[in-house]
Design a protein around this nucleic acid. Structure first.
Lengths: 208, 208
DNA sequence: ACCTGAACACCGTTCAAGT
DNA sequence: ACCTGAACACCGTTCAAGT
C-alpha cells in the first residue's frame, strides 16, 4: 500500500491573493456540502468543482489530487477537536487523576457529539483514503497531553504514565468512534455518556 | 403447503453446484490475494476476476456488485472472530467479573493480532463501503454475550448489566481497532496488551 | 444454460490551448 | 500567469453474442 508523504497532501498553491483564498474556501465548503448532501460515494471531483463554481483544472491547481482535498478537510476537523481538548486540559490541570480521566472523557464526548452530523460525515471520508497517518498523529498528540496532565495530578503515582495516557486516549477515542459509526442510537450514546467517564476514572484510579 | 420445486427433480449429482462452489471459492481467495498484494486502491473487479481465472461477466453472476463481494469477505472474518470469542466466553463462564472482563479483553487481543496482516487488510475494506451495519451487528452480539457472562458471575451485582457489557464491548473493540489502524507499532501493541485487560478489570470491578 | 468480453457511463487526472 | 475543458486511462457494470 503506497503511503503518500505529507508534502504531496498539502495544497499545491499558497493562497497569496484574496481571490485564491476565496477559491480555496469555496472548494472547501463545496466539498462538505456535496458530502452532506450526496454522501461519500457521490463525492466526486467533478461535482465539487461544479458546486464551487470552478473548473476541474483550477481545482487541480490548488490540490494535486482528490486525497489532498479530503486531507485538508480532515485536518481542519482535527484542529478543531485539538483546540477543544487543549482548553479542557487547561481546566483540568492540577486536579486528581480520577477527575482528569473523567473530565477528558466527557470533553471528548462533548466535542464529538456536538455536531455529530458533520463529524460522522467526515469520519466517513477516512476510509476512502489513507487516514492512518493523520489519525496516528492525533492519537499520539492526545496521549502526550494526557500524560502531562496525569503526571501533574497531586495523587499521581504511575509506574508508566505514558502507557496509561496512551491507553486512556485509545479507549476514549476508540469507543466513541466505534459507537458513533457502528451503533449511534440515542440509547447507546446515553450509555456511553454515562459509562465511559466511569470506566476512565476506574482505570486510572486502579493503576495510580 | 409445500410444493416440490424443480430443484428436486434435477439429477441428484449436480456438477454445476460443485463447480459453482469452486468458482466462488476461487473468487474469494483471489480477492484476499489481490488485497494483500496490491492494497485496497488496486482491488478492482478486473484484477480479481483475472486472478481467479474467470471473466468479469461470470463474477457478476455470483456477486451482483463489488460491495457484495467485499461484504462476503468481511462477513466470513466476522464469523471467525465470533466463533473464537464464543469459545473464550465458554471458558470464562462462572468466573468472577474481574476475570471475565480481563479474559475477554485478552481473547479479543489474541484473535485480532493473530493474523494481523489479514485483519488489517480486511479492516481497510470497511471504509470503502458501508460496513456500519455489519459492525453494529457484531458489536451488539458481542455486548449480549458479555452481558450474559457478567450476569452469571458469582460476584455480579450490576445496576445495569447491559450497559456495562455494552461499554466493555465498545472499549475493547474500539481501542484495539484504533491502535491497530492508527498506530500499530510494536511498543503500542505491547502497551495495549498490558493496559487494556487492567482497564477492563478496573471498570467492571468499580461498578459491580 | 451458461460464459464471455466489448461496450457504456462515469471517475480521477492531465495538458494544450485559450485569456 | 492563470483558467479551461476536451482527452486519456481506468473503473464498475451490462448485455448481445457466442458456446
Amino acid at each position: 500500500m503506497n503511503r503518500l508523504g505529507p508534502t504531496l497532501l498539502k495544497p499545491r498553491k499558497a493562497p497569496k491573493q484574496t481571490r485564491s483564498a476565496a477559491t480555496i474556501e469555496a472548494i472547501h465548503t463545496a466539498t462538505i456540502q456535496v458530502l452532506l448532501a450526496e454522501g461519500v460515494a457521490r463525492l466526486t471531483t467533478t461535482r465539487v468543482a461544479e458546486r464551487a463554481g470552478v473548473s476541474i483544472g483550477t481545482m487541480y491547481q490548488y490540490y494535486p489530487h482528490k486525497q489532498a482535498l479530503l486531507f485538508a478537510i480532515v485536518e481542519q476537523q482535527l484542529e478543531t477537536v485539538t483546540a477543544f481538548m487543549l482548553a479542557a486540559a487547561d481546566r483540568l490541570r492540577g486536579r486528581h487523576v480520577g477527575d482528569v480521566a473523567e473530565g477528558l472523557a466527557t470533553a471528548w464526548l462533548d466535542v464529538k457529539t456536538s455536531d455529530s452530523q458533520a463529524f460522522r460525515a467526515i469520519y466517513s471520508i477516512a476510509a476512502e483514503f489513507d487516514l492512518a497517518e493523520g489519525m496516528g498523529r492525533a492519537l499520539k498528540h492526545m496521549a502526550e497531553v494526557m500524560s502531562q496532565l496525569l503526571a501533574a495530578a497531586p495523587d499521581a503515582n504511575f509506574e508508566d504514565c505514558d502507557a496509561v495516557a496512551f491507553m486512556l486516549a485509545s479507549m476514549i477515542g476508540g469507543s466513541v468512534r466505534t459507537v458513533m459509526d457502528a451503533a449511534a442510537s440515542e440509547e447507546n450514546l446515553m450509555r456511553l455518556r454515562r459509562e465511559l467517564p466511569l470506566a476512565c476514572r476506574a482505570y486510572v484510579t486502579a493503576v495510580r
